[in-house]
Design a protein around this nucleic acid. Structure first.
Length: 595
RNA sequence: GGUCCCGUAGCUUAACUGAAUAGAGCAUCUGACUACGGAUCAGAAGGUUGGGGGUUUGAAUCCCUUCGGGAUCACCA
């Protein structure tokens, strides 16, 4: 519709002022609520053609459109703004089409689908997932669904950081202090158990440093010569050499961690198509660096360390292999990227990684370009903001890390107490209730995180951040549950919605307002996919719910006497319900049938 | 110090890539159920978009400057 109107506007200017308009001069936008109309043309840019006042220009174009453009039923001009009024029958006709289609996302499909890898989560195996990972996982998962809904081939992927000195630290601590403790023997979830030994290492290490300092050693030397650290380094060397005992221990402890992560991922409702492990990819990375050196893209220092010079691209020199030949972070990312390209020939890889690594990804891209990898342009860093607490960043040392498992559990508990307080659901079985609490608690958490612009840092206030009223997940879920309830009731009454009757109805402004919103859905999803922003969909679902709740409050649906109007309202409810369901699905949020 | 990001009501945030009177929610105050679900709805109050300058018919948005906060610049990941 907008496109047709825009073309008519161009035609109007051609006829009235004998001038050709370029698209960027036709600024057609939604009319703001305080004014009358549906679409607004900003006429300021057209004054140079009309050589007239804004009011006169608006008036002339408005008149032309009313007589030449069937969609436009009327207009008004306020200052430099031409507000166009669309006839109700246009909106009703549009809704009839929408209502008859069974695929709300049909218009979102791109004409040339890409193969896109979305990397998210990327945990370390020495500690459990926390709130930061939750944002990461939710963003990555939702982006995957959005891109895939738009027709792209999406591979959800994860790179597990399972090697390095930090892993050896928890292994050493477990060996020395663990007395053979396992998840099974202790009842502690595997990732938490390993995390416990990592913390224990750091504590004991600190004690040893203090002891050494008290004997007169300076702190730096103490740090480097504490027995525990020496043992960890020794273990890393053994690991790299493939020492069977070390590798077995590593495998065993990793398997505990993976089982723990799987549980968290499952609770969060995210999954992956393909998981890469750093312990596999770093070797590939080394290979690439060595061949890059041979081909003179890189250079070697006198101490044998290997570097790349990116100063010509405004970046710096970057180390790629240590002097002892071991790999650094960048090394394995090179390897991972190449392995992935070999596996999938992707058009894009979207790295969902915090903005603290902006520089790293700039370097990665520039480096791959320099080394001649054609796909370097397709490496996209989806840089999202940190989750902070009121007192600042989460710090594991200060024990302020918000644990993912705890948070998920707390959300469900909160949902439970809110529900019980409201006294609903009494007729459901225990299992049914648990399922509803889970959906609501998780819905609140997910919506809270996804509704904010991914690029912005966000503050999480444990006691009050997650609400169940207002602009929240449960508000949208509630709206959906109400709609479902109407249809249960309608069924009892023997009423069903009839597609053929829609065009004959005479709905009022409340209904039309919803139709206008429903119509925007596919544009919003397309926009979310293009700009990689689930927040657009989240806020849209809220707007739609709000509009629907107003309608629901003011007007009766099943109680409406006029069958045509009742049918229209029922159809409107049906499409609103499926739009909310689809929108929230794109965010990874489940909707309860009742709550 | 170099580079980059962010400052919007008390709090959490929106604003389509420069347009009209900057939208919401929470919290506060006032009202609405003999009605399809009150986790709802209606209303009030709350803003010099950190400050200052500039470009423009028009700036939260672009440019400069200043203040405040953060990130990054490791043979850490």
């Amino acid at each position: 519709m907008e496109l047709r109107i825009k073309n008519k506007i161009k035609e109007a200017v051609r006829v009235l002022y004998n001038s050709e308009l370029t698209d960027n001069l036709v600024q057609l936008q939604e009319t703001r609520k305080v004014f009358k109309g549906d679409f607004t043309l900003v006429v300021f840019p057209l004054l140079r053609f009309s050589k007239n006042t804004p009011e006169q220009t608006g008036e002339s174009i408005g008149k032309y459109l009313v007589s030449n453009c069937p969609e436009v039923a009327g207009f008004n001009v306020i200052k430099g703004f031409l507000n166009l009024e669309i006839s109700d029958s246009q909106w009703i006709g549009y809704f009839a089409d929408l209502s008859g289609s069974d695929d709300l996302l049909e218009k979102c499909r791109v004409s040339s689908p890409e193969t896109i890898l979305v990397e998210y989560s990327s945990p370390n195996t020495n500690k459990p997932l926390h709130l930061g990972h939750i944002r990461n996982n939710l963003l990555g998962f939702s982006l995957s669904r959005i891109l895939s809904a738009c027709g792209h081939k999406v591979i959800k992927t994860n790179i597990v950081n399972d090697r390095g000195i930090h892993i050896c630290k928890s292994m050493i601590a477990w060996k020395k202090f663990g007395n053979g403790e396992t998840p099974g023997s202790s009842g502690i979830k595997g990732d938490h158990l390993v995390g416990k030994y990592y913390v224990m290492f750091e504590q004991q290490y600190k004690v040893q440093i203090e002891d050494l300092v008290s004997t007169g050693m300076n702190e730096n030397d103490a740090r480097n010569s504490a027995p525990l650290l020496l043992e960890a380094r020794d273990m890393l060397i053994k690991w790299e050499a493939g020492d069977p005992e070390t590798v077995d221990l590593w495998k065993m402890m990793n398997s505990w961690v993976y089982a723990g992560f799987d549980e968290t991922y499952h609770a969060l409702g995210v999954d992956f198509d393909r998981i890469y492990y750093e312990s596999d990819t770093y070797l590939k990375g080394k290979e690439i660096v060595l061949s890059g050196l041979e081909r003179n893209f890189l250079y070697q220092n006198s101490d044998n360390s290997i570097w790349v010079d990116l100063t010509s691209q405004g970046l710096d020199h970057k180390l790629l292999l240590r002097s002892d030949g071991t790999a650094v972070y960048m090394t394995q990312d090179l390897g991972t990227a190449v392995m992935r390209y070999n596996d999938y020939k992707f058009d894009r890889t979207i790295y969902v990684v915090g903005n603290e690594q902006n520089y790293h990804f700039q370097v990665l891209r520039a480096l791959m370009k320099k080394m001649g990898y054609g796909f370097s342009e397709g490496l996209i860093h989806f840089s999202y903001g940190m989750v902070e607490l009121p007192e600042g960043r989460m710090k594991s040392r200060e024990g302020t890390v918000v644990d993912a498992d705890d948070l998920i559990k707390e959300m469900k508990e909160t949902a439970r107490s809110v529900s019980l307080e409201l006294g609903k659901l009494s007729e459901y079985s225990g299992d049914e209730k648990e399922e509803i609490f889970r959906k609501i608690g998780l819905g609140a958490l997910k919506y809270f995180i996804l509704k904010v612009d991914p690029h912005k840092n966000m503050t999480f206030i444990p006691s009050e951040s997650i609400d169940f009223n207002g602009n929240t997940g449960p508000f949208i879920q509630y709206t959906y549950a109400r709609i479902r309830s109407i249809f249960r009731k309608a069924e009892q009454m023997g009423i069903s919605s009839n597609q053929d009757m829609i065009r004959n109805a005479m709905p009022g402004p409340r209904e039309i307002a919803i139709v206008k919103l429903l119509r925007k859905f596919s544009d919003i999803v397309t926009e979310a996919s293009a700009s990689l922003s689930p927040a657009l969909i989240a806020n849209y679902c809220y707007d739609l719910s709000k509009e629907y709740n107003q309608f629901y409050h003011d007007l009766s649906i099943l109680g409406e006497e006029n069958p045509g109007l009742r049918n229209f309202r029922l159809s409107l409810s049906r499409v609103t319900g499926s739009t909310l369901l689809t929108g929230m699905w794109l965010l990874g949020i489940e909707m309860p049938e009742r709550m």
